[in-house]
Amino acid sequence: MNQHDTQLQGAASLRIQSILYGNTQQHVDQSLASLGRAVELAISSGALSKVQMAFGDCSPDPVFTDEEIEERRKRFEAQGLGDIQYEFYDKNLGSAAGHNRLLEGLNSELVLILNPDTVVAPDLFIELVKPMRERQRVAVVEARQVPIEHPKDYSVASGETGWVTTACALVTAAVAKEVNGFDSESFFLYCDDVDFSWRIRLAGYKLVFQPSAVIFHDKRLSQEGKWIVGAAEEYFSAEAAMMLSYKYSRADLADRIERQLLDAGSESEKKAARKFQSLKESGKLPVQIDADHKVAQFIDGFYSKHRF
């Protein structure tokens, strides 16, 4: 039984939240300028009523001073983006814990989880709220990313999808609170969005991929045409794969990944496998859910069917 009505009736209030980690001001300003325009158009079209921007800064040194934030409040006020909150955490909490900390003070109807290395399309919000206005039980709407589109599958007819990436995802605030935000204990950097998505689906809500809502996510390719993966990315990604499998009642799969990584993984991956082993031995792995495998999918190392 759903606890919350997610269908929007009129202009909604929104909080946009981003976790900073070593971003340059120029990068963040570029993102803010695009958000300013998108908010302006969304308010004038009646899609949104009021908007707050919240930054949580996990960087070693603050990206902004108070004066610099104040200057930006003034700069974007006319576009409806004058309410900018900024908190320097003085600690790298990770994306999931950072967002959870921001979610604590949430008092809007909607929350947009957004990566700071993104630039949004002018009609982003107008397009994102459409599924929530048109249909019931849509708790999350995910934007399409360019220049590299995520290959996970979705229904062309309804947009429904198995999980959403939180590079840019609009979430019903009440639902985000209902599922207690992200599982930051289990997921530091990766798969926090897969887990978040699956728990929302387990709670009975729908996730929708909206191709007409677009963001530019600054991803690049190596000179060989491959993803550029750093050692940290490799470590957290491997760790997350085992944690996710275990949490969603696929201990067999988690063990298999662990063995494979120990046998043939890179140094970072072996380190992740050893960490998983130690958590297992000390009984610190997450409580298992989705015993009947209603929402979790593990297909060829991915968490849903891929289109290509």
Binding site: Q30, S34, A121, V214, F216
Partner: peptide
């Protein structure tokens, strides 16, 4: 066309 303008913005 719209997506490309977005990429130019970025």
């Amino acid at each position: 066309f719209r997506d490309l303008l977005l990429a130019l913005t970025a």
